[in-house]
Computed example of a mutant assay.
Amino acid sequence: MFDLIQVALTNRSALLATLHAENSDCYRLFHGVNEGRPGLTVDRYGPQLLIQTFHESISEAQAAAIHTQVEAFLGCALTCVYNDRSSANSRRSDDFRVDNWEGEARELGVRYRVKGKHEGQDPLLFLDMRAGRRWIQQHAAGKSVLNLFSYTCGVGVVAAVAGASRVLNVDFSTRSLDIGRQNAELNDLKASQISFFQSDFFTAAKQLAGIPIKQRVGRGRKPKPFPKIGEEKFDLVFLDPPRWAKSAFGTVDLIRDYPSVLKPALLATKPGGQLVCANNVASVSYAEWLDTVQRCAEKAGCPVKSITRLEPETDFPSPDGQFPLKLVVLQL
Rank of each mutant, 00 (worst) to 15 (best):
A141G: 11
A209T: 01
V114Q: 08
W101Q: 12
S150F: 00
C153R: 05
N100M: 08
A159G: 07
V158T: 11
P223F: 00
M129K: 15
C153Y: 07
F172Q: 15
L186Q: 01
G163N: 08
K222G: 10
N100V: 04
C153N: 11
R219E: 13
R130P: 11
F226C: 02
S195H: 02
Q137G: 15
R134Q: 12
K214N: 08
E107F: 09
K228N: 11
E104G: 07
I179V: 15
V110N: 06
F96V: 15
S199G: 07
G116S: 07
N100S: 13
T203H: 01
L189I: 01
F201E: 03
A159L: 04
Q137N: 10
S165T: 02
K206F: 05
P123C: 09
E185H: 13
K206N: 13
D99G: 10
F126R: 12
V167M: 00
D122M: 12
L189A: 04
R92P: 03
G142V: 02
K115D: 10
K143E: 02
V217L: 08
A204E: 03
L208C: 04
F96W: 15
F196I: 06
K222Y: 12
Q198P: 08
V110K: 06
A204S: 05
R133F: 03
D95S: 12
Y112D: 01
N183D: 05
T174A: 14
G132K: 11
I213R: 00
K143V: 00
H139V: 02
R113P: 04
S176D: 07
K115E: 05
G218L: 15
K117A: 13
R221S: 10
N169P: 00
Q198V: 10
L127M: 02
Q121C: 07
H139N: 08
S90M: 13
F202W: 01
R166E: 12
G218P: 14
R111W: 06
F149I: 13
Q121R: 03
L146T: 04
A140S: 12
R175H: 13
K228R: 15
K190T: 05
K117L: 15
E185A: 15
S192P: 00
Q193T: 00
K228D: 06
A184H: 04
D178P: 12
Q215R: 00
F202M: 08
